[in-house]
Simulated assay, not measured.
Amino acid sequence: MTDIIDGKAVAEGIRAELESSVGALKDAGVTPGLATVLMSDDPASETYVSMKQRDCEEVGIEGIHVEIDPDAPASELYDAIDELNDDPEVHGILVQMPVPEHVDSRRVLRAIDPTKDADGFHPENVGMLVAGHPRFKPCTPHGVQKLLASANVDTEGKDAVVVGRSNIVGKPMANLLVQKADGGNATVTVCHSRTADLAAKTREADIVVAAAGVPEMIDGEMLSDGVTVIDVGVNRVDADTEKGYELVGDVDFESAKEKASAITPVPGGVGPMTRAMLLYNTVKAAGIREGVEVELP
Rank of each mutant, 00 (worst) to 15 (best):
T228F: 04
T274Q: 08
A44E: 15
Y78G: 01
E156P: 01
G33N: 06
G268F: 00
A262D: 00
A9M: 14
G268L: 09
V188H: 00
E221P: 10
E17H: 13
V130M: 11
A151V: 02
D182N: 10
T264N: 00
K52H: 07
D86L: 07
V22P: 09
H102D: 11
S20Q: 15
E293H: 14
K180G: 07
A260H: 12
E76Q: 13
Y48G: 12
R194H: 13
A24L: 11
K259A: 11
A205Q: 02
P98D: 10
A260V: 04
G63Y: 05
P138F: 07
G29R: 12
T2S: 12
D79C: 04
V232N: 02
N175I: 15
E67L: 04
G7L: 06
G170D: 07
A72W: 04
T282I: 06
V10K: 01
E204Q: 15
A149W: 04
L296Y: 08
T115S: 15
S45I: 12
N175E: 11
A160D: 12
D42I: 11
I93R: 00
N152V: 12
P73Q: 05
G60L: 06
K158V: 07
G269D: 00
N185L: 15
V59P: 13
D117G: 02
D69E: 06
V108H: 05
A286T: 05
I230M: 05
N185R: 15
E62N: 13
K116E: 03
M51Y: 14
G63I: 01
V169I: 08
E254S: 10
G220Q: 04
E246N: 10
V30D: 12
A28K: 13
I263Y: 00
H65P: 06
